[in-house]
Protein backbone atom coordinates (compact mmCIF):
# COMPACT_ATOMS: atom_id res chain seq x y z
CA UNK A 1 0.00 0.00 0.00
CA UNK A 2 2.60 2.52 1.15
CA UNK A 3 6.35 2.30 1.02
CA UNK A 4 8.54 5.14 2.25
CA UNK A 5 12.24 4.80 1.50
CA UNK A 6 14.88 6.97 3.11
CA UNK A 7 12.70 10.08 2.91
CA UNK A 8 14.42 13.33 3.78
CA UNK A 9 12.81 16.74 3.72
CA UNK A 10 13.48 20.27 4.82
CA UNK A 11 11.66 23.52 5.38
CA UNK A 12 13.42 26.81 4.77
CA UNK A 13 16.75 25.02 4.67
CA UNK A 14 16.12 23.27 7.96
CA UNK A 15 16.22 19.48 7.80
CA UNK A 16 13.14 18.00 9.44
CA UNK A 17 12.84 14.48 8.12
CA UNK A 18 16.21 12.80 8.15
CA UNK A 19 15.65 9.47 6.51
CA UNK A 20 12.29 7.82 7.11
CA UNK A 21 11.73 4.21 6.19
CA UNK A 22 8.25 2.83 6.64
CA UNK A 23 6.23 0.13 4.93
CA UNK A 24 2.52 -0.20 5.52
CA UNK A 25 0.65 -3.12 4.00
CA UNK A 26 -3.01 -3.09 3.05
CA UNK A 27 -5.13 -4.04 6.05
CA UNK A 28 -2.59 -2.75 8.58
CA UNK A 29 -2.84 -0.03 11.18
CA UNK A 30 0.38 1.66 12.22
CA UNK A 31 0.78 4.07 15.09
CA UNK A 32 3.46 6.75 15.08
CA UNK A 33 4.43 8.27 18.38
CA UNK A 34 7.21 10.61 19.30
CA UNK A 35 8.12 13.80 21.09
CA UNK A 36 6.77 17.22 20.11
CA UNK A 37 8.54 18.66 17.14
CA UNK A 38 9.94 15.34 15.99
CA UNK A 39 8.37 15.61 12.54
CA UNK A 40 5.13 13.59 12.78
CA UNK A 41 2.88 16.28 11.31
CA UNK A 42 5.51 17.10 8.73
CA UNK A 43 5.52 13.50 7.58
CA UNK A 44 1.71 13.38 7.38
CA UNK A 45 1.59 16.70 5.50
CA UNK A 46 4.21 15.59 3.01
CA UNK A 47 2.31 12.38 2.38
CA UNK A 48 -0.89 14.35 1.81
CA UNK A 49 0.88 16.74 -0.57
CA UNK A 50 1.16 20.01 1.24
CA UNK A 51 3.34 22.62 -0.51
CA UNK A 52 6.23 24.31 1.20
CA UNK A 53 8.49 21.34 1.91
CA UNK A 54 11.58 20.50 -0.05
CA UNK A 55 12.00 16.79 -0.54
CA UNK A 56 15.75 16.32 -0.51
CA UNK A 57 15.83 12.57 -0.99
CA UNK A 58 14.02 9.27 -0.88
CA UNK A 59 10.87 7.88 -2.44
CA UNK A 60 7.25 7.30 -1.51
CA UNK A 61 5.30 4.65 -3.37
CA UNK A 62 1.55 4.42 -2.91
CA UNK A 63 -0.35 1.63 -4.63
CA UNK A 64 2.54 1.25 -7.00
CA UNK A 65 2.73 4.88 -8.05
CA UNK A 66 5.07 7.71 -7.14
CA UNK A 67 3.02 9.54 -4.56
CA UNK A 68 5.26 12.59 -4.41
CA UNK A 69 4.65 13.32 -8.09
CA UNK A 70 0.93 13.87 -7.57
CA UNK A 71 -0.65 17.17 -6.52
CA UNK A 72 -2.55 17.06 -3.23
CA UNK A 73 -6.00 16.90 -4.80
CA UNK A 74 -5.09 13.89 -6.91
CA UNK A 75 -3.70 12.06 -3.92
CA UNK A 76 -7.00 12.71 -2.16
CA UNK A 77 -9.04 11.50 -5.12
CA UNK A 78 -6.98 8.34 -5.32
CA UNK A 79 -7.73 7.56 -1.70
CA UNK A 80 -5.23 9.32 0.55
CA UNK A 81 -6.91 11.08 3.44
CA UNK A 82 -5.39 13.30 6.11
CA UNK A 83 -7.28 14.08 9.29
CA UNK A 84 -5.72 17.34 10.41
CA UNK A 85 -4.15 17.99 13.79
CA UNK A 86 -5.60 21.50 13.55
CA UNK A 87 -8.64 21.49 11.22
CA UNK A 88 -9.15 24.87 9.54
CA UNK A 89 -12.29 26.95 9.46
CA UNK A 90 -13.88 28.01 6.18
CA UNK A 91 -16.41 30.78 6.82
CA UNK A 92 -19.54 30.73 4.72
CA UNK A 93 -18.97 27.28 3.25
CA UNK A 94 -21.35 24.77 4.72
CA UNK A 95 -20.05 21.44 5.89
CA UNK A 96 -22.47 19.56 3.70
CA UNK A 97 -21.37 21.49 0.63
CA UNK A 98 -17.74 20.65 1.22
CA UNK A 99 -18.59 16.99 1.84
CA UNK A 100 -20.56 16.73 -1.35
CA UNK A 101 -17.83 18.38 -3.41
CA UNK A 102 -15.24 16.07 -1.85
CA UNK A 103 -17.25 12.87 -2.27
CA UNK A 104 -18.09 13.65 -5.87
CA UNK A 105 -14.50 14.61 -6.72
CA UNK A 106 -13.43 11.18 -5.50
CA UNK A 107 -16.27 9.39 -7.27
CA UNK A 108 -15.52 11.10 -10.56
CA UNK A 109 -11.92 10.08 -10.24
CA UNK A 110 -12.71 6.41 -9.76
CA UNK A 111 -15.28 6.44 -12.53
CA UNK A 112 -18.43 6.34 -10.43
CA UNK A 113 -21.38 8.62 -11.19
CA UNK A 114 -21.75 11.63 -8.92
CA UNK A 115 -24.27 11.20 -6.16
CA UNK A 116 -27.43 13.20 -6.67
CA UNK A 117 -28.77 15.40 -3.92
CA UNK A 118 -31.14 12.80 -2.50
CA UNK A 119 -28.70 9.90 -2.41
CA UNK A 120 -26.03 12.11 -0.96
CA UNK A 121 -28.35 13.39 1.73
CA UNK A 122 -29.39 9.95 2.88
CA UNK A 123 -25.77 8.79 2.94
CA UNK A 124 -24.51 11.77 4.88
CA UNK A 125 -27.37 11.53 7.37
CA UNK A 126 -26.53 7.94 8.08
CA UNK A 127 -22.87 8.78 8.68
CA UNK A 128 -23.66 11.77 10.85
CA UNK A 129 -25.81 9.56 12.98
CA UNK A 130 -23.06 6.97 13.17
CA UNK A 131 -20.66 9.67 14.39
CA UNK A 132 -23.27 10.72 16.96
CA UNK A 133 -23.23 14.26 15.65
CA UNK A 134 -26.14 16.63 15.43
CA UNK A 135 -27.46 16.97 11.90
CA UNK A 136 -27.41 20.75 12.26
CA UNK A 137 -23.59 20.52 12.09
CA UNK A 138 -23.96 19.78 8.40
CA UNK A 139 -25.37 23.18 7.71
CA UNK A 140 -22.86 25.15 9.71
CA UNK A 141 -19.80 26.62 8.07
CA UNK A 142 -16.90 24.17 7.97
CA UNK A 143 -15.42 24.01 11.49
CA UNK A 144 -16.44 27.61 12.21
CA UNK A 145 -17.15 27.95 15.90
CA UNK A 146 -16.81 24.19 16.36
CA UNK A 147 -15.29 23.10 19.65
CA UNK A 148 -11.94 21.31 19.45
CA UNK A 149 -13.61 17.93 19.89
CA UNK A 150 -16.31 18.73 17.34
CA UNK A 151 -13.67 19.59 14.77
CA UNK A 152 -11.97 16.25 15.27
CA UNK A 153 -15.24 14.40 15.01
CA UNK A 154 -15.93 16.33 11.84
CA UNK A 155 -12.63 15.13 10.37
CA UNK A 156 -13.63 11.55 10.98
CA UNK A 157 -17.02 12.21 9.43
CA UNK A 158 -15.23 13.37 6.30
CA UNK A 159 -13.07 10.29 6.42
CA UNK A 160 -15.90 7.80 6.63
CA UNK A 161 -17.72 9.64 3.85
CA UNK A 162 -14.68 9.44 1.59
CA UNK A 163 -13.73 5.85 2.47
CA UNK A 164 -10.02 6.35 1.82
CA UNK A 165 -7.54 3.58 1.06
CA UNK A 166 -4.86 5.20 3.15
CA UNK A 167 -5.91 7.28 6.14
CA UNK A 168 -3.45 9.46 8.01
CA UNK A 169 -4.78 10.63 11.34
CA UNK A 170 -2.70 13.34 12.94
CA UNK A 171 -3.47 13.44 16.65
CA UNK A 172 -7.15 12.97 16.08
CA UNK A 173 -7.43 11.83 19.68
CA UNK A 174 -5.93 14.97 21.20
CA UNK A 175 -8.48 17.10 22.97
CA UNK A 176 -11.23 14.49 22.94
CA UNK A 177 -13.29 13.61 25.96
CA UNK A 178 -13.78 9.91 26.76
CA UNK A 179 -17.08 9.62 24.93
CA UNK A 180 -15.79 11.43 21.87
CA UNK A 181 -12.69 9.22 21.87
CA UNK A 182 -14.96 6.17 21.73
CA UNK A 183 -16.98 7.62 18.87
CA UNK A 184 -13.90 8.59 16.90
CA UNK A 185 -12.43 5.14 17.46
CA UNK A 186 -15.68 3.58 16.33
CA UNK A 187 -15.45 5.63 13.14
CA UNK A 188 -11.88 4.57 12.53
CA UNK A 189 -12.56 0.91 13.29
CA UNK A 190 -15.54 0.91 10.96
CA UNK A 191 -13.15 1.60 8.11
CA UNK A 192 -10.64 -1.11 9.02
CA UNK A 193 -10.59 -3.59 6.21
CA UNK A 194 -8.14 -5.79 4.34
CA UNK A 195 -7.86 -3.29 1.52
CA UNK A 196 -7.25 -0.20 3.65
CA UNK A 197 -4.32 1.01 5.64
CA UNK A 198 -4.09 3.60 8.40
CA UNK A 199 -1.42 5.59 10.12
CA UNK A 200 -2.35 7.03 13.48
CA UNK A 201 -0.19 9.76 14.91
CA UNK A 202 -0.79 9.93 18.63
CA UNK A 203 0.78 10.83 21.92
CA UNK A 204 -1.39 8.55 24.03
CA UNK A 205 -1.74 4.88 24.61
CA UNK A 206 -5.45 5.33 25.39
CA UNK A 207 -6.35 5.68 21.69
CA UNK A 208 -4.59 2.40 21.09
CA UNK A 209 -6.81 0.78 23.72
CA UNK A 210 -9.66 1.27 21.26
CA UNK A 211 -7.79 0.86 18.00
CA UNK A 212 -5.23 -1.88 18.26
CA UNK A 213 -2.34 -1.17 15.93
CA UNK A 214 -0.35 -3.79 14.07
CA UNK A 215 2.84 -1.83 14.55
CA UNK A 216 4.01 1.10 16.63
CA UNK A 217 6.87 3.39 15.56
CA UNK A 218 8.68 6.05 17.44
CA UNK A 219 9.68 9.09 15.43
CA UNK A 220 12.34 11.23 16.97
CA UNK A 221 14.27 14.13 15.47
CA UNK A 222 13.19 13.17 11.98
CA UNK A 223 13.96 9.46 12.17
CA UNK A 224 12.09 6.35 13.15
CA UNK A 225 14.18 5.24 16.09
CA UNK A 226 12.18 2.24 17.22
CA UNK A 227 9.46 0.01 15.89
CA UNK A 228 7.53 -2.76 17.58
CA UNK A 229 4.17 -4.25 18.33
CA UNK A 230 1.37 -2.75 20.45
CA UNK A 231 3.40 -3.41 23.59
CA UNK A 232 5.83 -0.67 22.56
CA UNK A 233 3.15 1.92 23.17
CA UNK A 234 2.64 0.62 26.71
CA UNK A 235 6.34 0.76 27.29
CA UNK A 236 6.46 4.38 26.15
CA UNK A 237 3.49 5.25 28.31
CA UNK A 238 5.36 3.94 31.36
CA UNK A 239 8.81 5.27 30.61
CA UNK A 240 8.52 8.25 28.28
CA UNK A 241 10.87 8.72 25.37
CA UNK A 242 14.02 9.11 27.42
CA UNK A 243 14.66 5.38 27.67
CA UNK A 244 15.04 5.22 23.89
CA UNK A 245 18.19 7.27 24.09
CA UNK A 246 18.46 9.06 20.79
CA UNK A 247 15.76 11.31 19.53
CA UNK A 248 14.85 13.31 22.56
CA UNK A 249 17.57 15.89 22.37
CA UNK A 250 15.37 18.43 24.10
CA UNK A 251 15.58 16.24 27.15
CA UNK A 252 19.29 16.17 26.97
CA UNK A 253 19.75 12.44 26.54
CA UNK A 254 22.83 11.06 24.94
CA UNK A 255 22.70 10.07 21.30
CA UNK A 256 22.69 6.39 20.54
CA UNK A 257 21.34 3.90 18.10
CA UNK A 258 18.06 2.41 19.17
CA UNK A 259 17.44 0.28 16.17
Amino acid sequence: MLEIRNLTAEVDGKAILKGIDLTVQAGEVHAIMGPNGSGKSTLSSILAGRDGYTITGGTVTYQGQDLLALPAEERARSGVFLAFQYPVEIPGVSNIYLLKAAVNARRRHIGLPELDAMDFLSLVREKVKFMEMDESMLYRAVNEGFSGGEKKRNEILQMIMLEPSLALLDETDSGLDIDALKVVSKGVNSLRSPDRAMILVTHYQRLLDYITPDQVHVLSAGRIVKSGGPELAHELERQGYAWLGDGAPARGTAPGAAR
Binding site: A76, R77, F81, A102, A105
Partner: peptide, 27 residues
Protein backbone atom coordinates in the same frame (compact mmCIF):
# COMPACT_ATOMS: atom_id res chain seq x y z
CA UNK B 1 -4.86 31.07 3.76
CA UNK B 2 -2.53 28.32 2.61
CA UNK B 3 -4.09 26.16 5.29
CA UNK B 4 -7.57 26.60 3.86
CA UNK B 5 -6.37 25.89 0.36
CA UNK B 6 -4.48 22.78 1.41
CA UNK B 7 -7.41 21.56 3.46
CA UNK B 8 -9.73 21.78 0.46
CA UNK B 9 -7.21 20.16 -1.86
CA UNK B 10 -6.66 17.35 0.60
CA UNK B 11 -10.38 16.70 0.21
CA UNK B 12 -10.00 16.32 -3.54
CA UNK B 13 -10.89 19.82 -4.73
CA UNK B 14 -8.75 21.45 -7.39
CA UNK B 15 -7.13 24.73 -6.36
CA UNK B 16 -9.56 26.58 -8.66
CA UNK B 17 -12.59 24.90 -7.13
CA UNK B 18 -11.22 25.46 -3.66
CA UNK B 19 -10.75 29.19 -4.25
CA UNK B 20 -14.12 29.47 -5.88
CA UNK B 21 -15.76 27.67 -2.96
CA UNK B 22 -14.03 29.84 -0.37
CA UNK B 23 -14.87 33.01 -2.30
CA UNK B 24 -18.50 31.98 -2.61
CA UNK B 25 -18.56 31.34 1.12
CA UNK B 26 -17.22 34.82 1.64
CA UNK B 27 -20.06 36.25 -0.46
Amino acid sequence: SEDQLFFCRSRGLSPEDAVSMIVNGFC
